[in-house]
Computed example of a mutant assay.
Amino acid sequence: MLDTSDRAHALILAAGRGERMRPWTDTTPKPLLQVQGRPLLQWHVDALAAGGCTDLVINTAWLGEQIPAHFGAAPRTSDGQALRIAYSEEGRDFGAALETAGGIVRALPRLAEVFWVVAGDVYTPGFTFSAAALRRFAQGNKLAHLWLVPNPPHNPLGDFGLSPDGLALNVPAALRENTHTYTYSTIGLYRRGFFTAPFVQSVDTLPPGNPAGVKAPLAPMLRAAMDNAAVSAELYNGPWTDVGTPERLRELNATHPQTTETPSP
Rank of each mutant, 00 (worst) to 15 (best):
Tyr123Ile: 10
Ala132Ser: 15
Pro125Glu: 03
Val149His: 01
Thr100Gln: 13
Gly80Pro: 07
Gln139Pro: 11
Ala131Gln: 12
Val114Ile: 03
Pro156His: 10
His145Asp: 04
Asp93Asn: 14
Gly161Glu: 01
Arg135His: 12
Val117Ile: 13
Leu98Met: 12
Leu134Asp: 08
Arg106Gly: 01
Trp147Phe: 09
Ala132Val: 13
Phe129Gly: 06
Leu143Phe: 05
Leu111Ile: 01
Leu98Thr: 13
Phe94Cys: 13
Pro109Leu: 01
Ala112Phe: 02
Asn141Lys: 13
Lys142Ile: 00
Ser78Asn: 02
Tyr123Arg: 02
Ala107His: 04
Leu111Gln: 01
Ala97Thr: 09
Val117Lys: 08
Arg106Tyr: 12
Gly126Thr: 00
Gly91Gln: 12
Pro125Val: 09
Ile104Glu: 05
Arg92Ile: 11
Asp121Val: 04
Trp116Asn: 05
Ser88Ile: 00
Val118Thr: 14
Glu89Cys: 14
Pro156Ile: 12
Asp159Ser: 09
Thr100Trp: 10
Leu111Ala: 01
Ser88Arg: 04
Tyr123Glu: 04
Thr77Glu: 03
Val122Lys: 03
Gly126Leu: 00
Ala86Asp: 15
Pro152Ala: 08
Gly103Cys: 09
Lys142Cys: 06
Arg135Ala: 15
Asp93Tyr: 09
Ala132Phe: 11
Val118Asn: 02
Ala132His: 14
Gly95Trp: 11
Ala97Trp: 12
Phe137His: 12
